[in-house]
Design a protein around this nucleic acid. Structure first.
Length: 338
RNA sequence: GGACGGGUGGGUGAGUGGCUAAAACCAGCAGACUGUAAAUCUGCCGCUCCUUGCGGGCUACGGAGGUUCGAAUCCUCCCCCGUCCA
């Protein structure tokens, strides 16, 4: 695991394998945010190599075992010998959540801290990063039984019914949550019923932030047109790597047909194609479109993320990599001197 | 050459005389989102002006004319596309 000597910026880091000084100061934590296909994994691996770090995926789909190609898990060669965490955590039948992610991520962070490794998060799922850094309110986890009842109520009555229930339980939340936003209404009602308090009140009680870490956020912001072009190419690459076969294999592996990961972008389209309802060309086009829309939503989310150092390009662009390295070096120095 | 069918805003496509800058859907843009988040939801979406208003002006339903107080919608001719007959 030698450090690559290339591209060394003006600020030369001294100890490349020690992300922090031993002592009580906050531990640096790098978070790379950006839309899908912007090169987060690539940048993550090269920063890890350079600064003695390990990669933590922060992605709601990559936690699922078996769903590899379509969720763009880094390939072995892309991982370049760097340990990658928080991938392949659960089976397809498991309903993974932001709360679950937080618990698992903190465990990994503690492990890295003990071993003095720099944690580097590659963040596709903004909510998960927020859940980790800012914490979640002290609200109960989801309750499948309660949800089943609410879903049934919504089915027999209407979505309006759910909104009426929510208005009664928590008028404030009802003004924030649209009357057609089924998942958010259900979550809000769930919390109200489980805690006996309005969701708004539960939220007001505050969150439990992650303590002891100094996040350095790096944002990848390639031009929109270039990103969209790359998305299109990547979809094709994934197919060339056998994505369709992966989906076919998963389909007949006994996993419940309505397991959550089958709804991920691409998996639903490719299953439709395997069932013969759409041509591969049509499915491919639909996948690109869905991915573009997803990228757009990520951009919207990350724009609001505070204190991000935005870099105007792809994470595998050498110029961007160099710039990111300088950025990290600067931060590590300044935090070391404090 | 003849007979039908059709040409609508970036795309698909509704609309058969006024309520139509023109349904709906898609794409696009912008936004929201504290436990399913690759989910879900919201707004905008011809151009333009301002006193930003259920405001004004302009342009628009293949082209040119016409009928009408009023036309994407009716009539005439022309152009193009599809199917069928020769």
């Amino acid at each position: 695991m030698s450090t690559a000597p290339k591209l060394t910026p003006n600020l030369t880091p001294e100890p490349q394998d020690r992300p922090r000084k031993s002592g009580p100061g906050p531990i640096p934590l790098i978070a790379i945010v950006g839309p899908t296909a912007s090169g987060k994994s690539s940048l993550g691996a090269s920063l890890a190599r350079k600064f003695g770090g390990e990669v933590l995926a922060c992605d709601s789909t990559q936690v699922y075992r078996g769903f590899d190609i379509g969720t763009a898990k880094p390939l072995p060669e892309e991982r370049a010998g760097i340990p990658h965490h928080l991938l392949d955590l659960v089976d397809a039948s498991f309903a993974f959540t932001a709360g679950e992610y937080r618990v698992r991520a903190i465990a990994v962070l503690e492990d890295l801290s003990r071993r003095s490794r720099l944690p580097i998060l590659t963040v596709g799922t903004g909510l998960y990063l927020r859940a980790l850094l800012e914490g979640l309110s002290d609200a109960p986890a989801r309750s499948e039984q309660l949800r089943a009842r609410l879903e049934a109520g919504a089915d027999t009555h209407s979505l309006e019914y759910l909104h009426r229930v929510l208005r009664r339980l928590d008028p404030e939340a009802a003004t924030r949550i649209g009357s057609r936003d089924r998942p958010k209404m259900i979550r809000a009602i769930e919390v109200c019923l489980l805690t006996g308090r309005p969701l708004s009140e539960v939220h007001q009680a505050g969150r439990t932030r992650l303590e002891g870490y100094a996040p350095i956020k790096i944002g990848l912001q390639p031009p929109r047109a270039a990103l969209y072009a790359r998305i299109e190419r990547r979809v094709q690459t994934m197919l060339d790597r056998g994505w369709l076969e992966e989906v076919a294999g998963l389909s007949r592996s006994g996993i419940s047909q309505d397991a959550k990961p089958f709804d991920f972008i691409g998996y639903s389209e490719l299953r439709a194609h395997l069932e013969g309802t759409v041509t591969l060309a049509a499915a491919t086009k639909a996948i690109s479109q869905a991915t573009r829309r997803y990228a757009k939503r990520q951009v919207t989310w990350f724009r609001k993320e505070p204190l991000v150092h935005w870099l105007p390009g792809f994470g595998d662009d050498p110029a961007i990599t160099t710039y990111a390295e300088q950025l990290v070096t600067g931060h590590l120095h300044s935090s070391a001197t404090i």
